[in-house]
Structure formats: structure tokens, C-alpha cells
Amino acid sequence: MAYFKLQGVGKSFGVRRVLHEVNLFVEEGEFVTIVGTSGSGKTTLIKIASGLMNPDTGGVFLAGLPVTSFPARAAMVFQNYSLLPWLSAKENVRLAVESAFPQWNRTQQLDQVTKYLEIVGLGAAAGKRPGQLSGGMRQRVAIARAFAVEPALMLLDEPFGALDALTRATLQAELIKLIGQQSPRATVLMISNSVDEAILLSDRVVALGTKLSPAVPVTLAHPRTHKALQHEEEAVKVKARITEFLLAAGTAKSAECQPVEPRILAQVVPE
């Protein structure tokens, strides 16, 4: 049985149906990415997956148990960092550690905070507040905060979406490294708008139109690099399949938007 699954998930906002009959099964230790264009319901999907939002139909299950609020031993990274601006980088991470490991003493908790801030290369900036850090550094803090709770399930909501291309590539590499260092590896569900990013990081890629496409496995060995992937036949094939599905979904959607009744134009005769 799959470790983390979404079963028959549907969600509408008013008359607009965002998700319909979404089924997704993620095995333990697997990295799955859902790729979708903007407005495809990606954010809604990950909010439902994380228990931050309730679906209209269907359900989310983690290790066989229904997810109704954000699960324990899970972590989430948001696109807009979501750090608390009145706390320093260190205090932001510490808040997570204290909450995840209340049984530890102060020293153990602080050691954990320092360890993860150093892993993401922010040892020196630990005392700074988010406002004093660049976008890339903020997202590093957010990543440190996520990994510091040693999560079994990691939810990534377009984690690199707000970053410039260069920072994005660096942080992708660091994410691969961090996940590799974990034992056992966390199960990861990522949302992204970049097919390349999905192929770079994940074991399986799924496209989200109004429904989910069949999952496309990526079997290439880690660590992968953007450069190598450009010439890799499998990567090119995966990209083509996912892109094709997204384009088809896009066409279907715009067809849906056509008015049902033909418009009757008024007769305008020049006098």
C-alpha cells in the first residue's frame, strides 16, 4: 500500500471546479513532482495534501491514516518563504525544532538549529532577520527549518518559484544533497511549474491539467545536472510527454471556455 496517497480528491470554489477525481500514490522515500501551469490548481492540490485545506470529495492518507490537519513529522516549504519577520533566522528554525522535539533539552535543540543552518551555509547569518536577507538566503532558512525537524514527509510548494535562475539552480543542487544525506530518506511531494526542475529532482513526474496525467518515471541516476539532462534521451522523452499532456489540457480548457450558445449579433444597418 502506498505510504502517502490522495484518493478521489475534488475541490470547487463556487461554480469553478479546480480539482476533480485526483488520485496520486507516493511510495515511502519517493520524490514525486506535480507539474502544472499557473491556474491549474497546483496550490490547491498541495494545500489539500498537507491538510491545510479540506477537499470537497475524497481524502488524503498518510501511512493509512486520514490527514485532516498538518501531519506530525512533516515539513513544508512555501514559495514565498513564509518566515516570521520578527524572528532571526536562528529563531525561525528554533521555533520549528522546539515544536518537533519538545523532549530535547535546550542545548540539543540549539545544536540541531545550528547544524542545519550551517548545512545550508547560513551559519554566519544566523542572527539576521529575514528582512536583512536576500530571497535566496531566506529560502535557505526555510529549507533549513524544514529539514531540521527530520521530516518523514516533505511538501514543497514551488519552493524555487520566486528565485532567479542562478540561485534556483544552486538551491536545487543543495536540496538534492540534503535529501541524499537523510536516512531514511523523506517522502517528497513537490509542486512546480518547471518540467526541467521536475526531471532534475524527482523519481516520478505527474502533470496536472484538470486531472492528473499518468505518472512518468525518471530512472536516471542521481545526482543529475541540468547540463547532462539536456543531452539525456530519457529526460528529453519525459519532458516531451509531460509538455504534450500540459498543452492538451490547456487546449481542452480553452475549449471549455467557449460560450455554449452561439451569440446572436444585433443587426446594424448603416443609415
Partner: peptide
């Protein structure tokens, strides 16, 4: 809403 989500995700008391 971001901060509300942080509180939920970190499962703060």
C-alpha cells in the same frame, strides 16, 4: 495567511 500557515505547519502550541 502565510503566518497562519506557518503556525499550522510547525504545529505550534
Amino acid at each position: 495567511q502565510d503566518y497562519v500557515n506557518v503556525a499550522k505547519v510547525l504545529r505550534l502550541s
